[in-house]
Computed example of a mutant assay.
Amino acid sequence: MGSALMGLAAGIITGGSTMLGALPILKKESKAWNPWRSLNLDFAIGMMLAAAAFNLIGPAYSSTSGALGVSLALLLGIVSIYGLSHFIHSFSPTQYSLHRRAWLFVTAMMLHNLPEGLASGAALSADTLSQANGWTVVGAIVFQNFPEGLATAAAFLSIGLSRRAAFFGAAMTGVMEIVGGAAGGIFASMTNASLPYILAFAGGAMISVTLEEIFAKLKETNMRYLYQKEFVLGAMSVVVMNWIIQ
């Protein structure tokens, strides 16, 4: 399978997991019936951070001698997502009608999910080109997307949207991951020389998204979060998965 199709497949898998995670919102007793309740977000954060480091950024540096270019691509990935996130959050939702508030939230979640799709698409494409363990990255993102899909749908529901509209809004954020996955695969298919920079950019974007969650946790736990059991186990699971795949 070509790199472009591999990237699209990765996007469909990760985007589909967001949609699947949002399905319980369609059931009225959603609080009582939550199949993803046992999935711990801290475990998923640990997985995503380790996957970005070991399966995206690490292979990017090891597959080329252009360390400066890879570093710049990594920095660009971090800065671009931080800038977009800051731009979205600079608006106060209270200044908008219910309809505009809902679309503002959709836009914010799309920007959050785009780098995840890009990371999965680039990593899975790289799996056939540079021995990077792309399936580990995809697995980490899927694990995180199940509870996130439901949380996104619940947020839509809380601002007054119907259950169907809430599911549709969450599903739209999953579509963005499919777009990101296809883009990652297409860019990777253009030339092998560009692959390390694509991986570095995707890794930087993925780390930027993950660190936003970690910093919020650190404010609550005063650094204790970094050795919290679930977070550490999530990171270690990626190491084990890499060992098994290799």
Rank of each mutant, 00 (worst) to 15 (best):
G2C: 13
A10N: 00
A10K: 01
G11R: 10
I12P: 12
I12C: 07
T14Y: 05
S17D: 01
L20H: 03
I25F: 01
I25P: 12
K27G: 07
K28W: 01
E29Q: 11
E29P: 02
E29W: 04
N34W: 09
S38P: 02
N40Y: 05
F43N: 05
F43T: 07
F43R: 09
G46Q: 01
Y61W: 09
S63F: 06
S63C: 09
A67D: 07
G69N: 04
G69W: 03
G69C: 06
G69Y: 01
V70W: 10
V70K: 06
S71A: 10
L72T: 01
L74W: 11
I78P: 13
S80P: 15
I81G: 00
H86D: 13
H86S: 13
F87K: 08
I88N: 11
P93Y: 08
T94D: 14
Q95I: 14
S97F: 12
H99D: 13
H99F: 15
R101S: 15
W103Y: 10
F105N: 13
A108V: 03
L111V: 09
N113K: 07
L114H: 05
G117N: 01
L118H: 00
A123M: 02
T128L: 15
N133S: 15
V137L: 01
G139Q: 00
G139D: 06
F143R: 06
F143E: 11
N145P: 07
A151R: 11
A153V: 05
A154T: 14
A154Y: 14
A155N: 02
S158H: 02
R163K: 08
F167K: 03
F168T: 13
A170E: 09
A171D: 10
M172G: 12
M172W: 14
V175P: 00
V175C: 14
A188S: 05
A193N: 02
A193T: 08
S194G: 12
Y197H: 12
F201W: 07
G203T: 05
G204R: 14
M206A: 11
M206C: 04
I207L: 15
I214N: 02
F215K: 07
L218W: 00
K219N: 13
K229D: 09
F231E: 04
F231W: 01
V232P: 09
L233Y: 06
L233M: 07
G234D: 07
S237Y: 06
S237P: 01
S237I: 15
V238W: 00
